[in-house]
Amino acid sequence: MHSRLSAFNITALVTGFAFLYLPIVILVIFSFNASRLVTVWGGFSTQWYGALLENEGIRSAAAVTLKVALISSTFATVLGTLAGLILARFGSFRGRTLFSGMIYAPMVMPEVITGLSLLLAFVALAIDRGMMTITLAHITFSLCYVAVVVQSRLVTFDNALEEAAMDLGATPARTFFQVTLPVIMPAVVSGWLLSFTLSLDDLVIASFTSGPGATTLPMKIYSQVRLGVTPEINAVSTIIVGLVAGGVIIASLIAKQARRDSDANHP
């Protein structure tokens, strides 16, 4: 459609976006507020970002969150890619429907239930709760997102590419690492970014599965906010928004590039 934006369209657009982004914009603006009062503008300042660095509690929570996010998204990517490959490749095997249904289940399961069941599992297995259990829990729920992303990429993958590689002398393992993986890499990377951001902002599951000494940033923020919103919290939230937005933008750019490549391969 090439019709020009009418006044109505513009109003709708602005209202919609305002609805979506106004709270975040306000949060970002007030993170640069010189005043200690959260809702009163007292001039521009970056002091709260400085104060963040001084705040031992927030710093250690940020470190825990980053570690959990990095480790869990990496493991989830490896496992999810394998699951996606199996779902896309091995046409029909015994229990395939069950397997694919089970892969998707964590996506639709209420987080509270996922968190609770993981908690019960850890208790039953007598695993000490802490950073490790949070990481395991995050792997569990982000794995399925990676699997879905990879599987949908493989639907358009030309199997002749793998046959060509083998025909030219590559063993199945080399075929995977030199042809299949590079071709689906964009999907794998966006799967990784997706699980990274999911892990970064998870509160519910982390609350269920964490133990003493392992507090993630969302948990920390949540507990502090109950005592009142401070400008420091605004500052840390702004940083998280920046990270997540960056991740999402990179993921979509990669996906776009990949689409161009695969389109070009099928004239």
């Binding site: 002749a160 046959e163 060509a164 025909d167 030219l168 071709v183 695969s262 070009a264 391969n265």
Partner: peptide, 19 residues
Amino acid sequence: PPYARPVNMMFQSYALFPH
């Protein structure tokens, strides 16, 4: 197996590696 045969194939879809 295919990767050990002294035979090469030219595919109908060409199957060039896009990367």
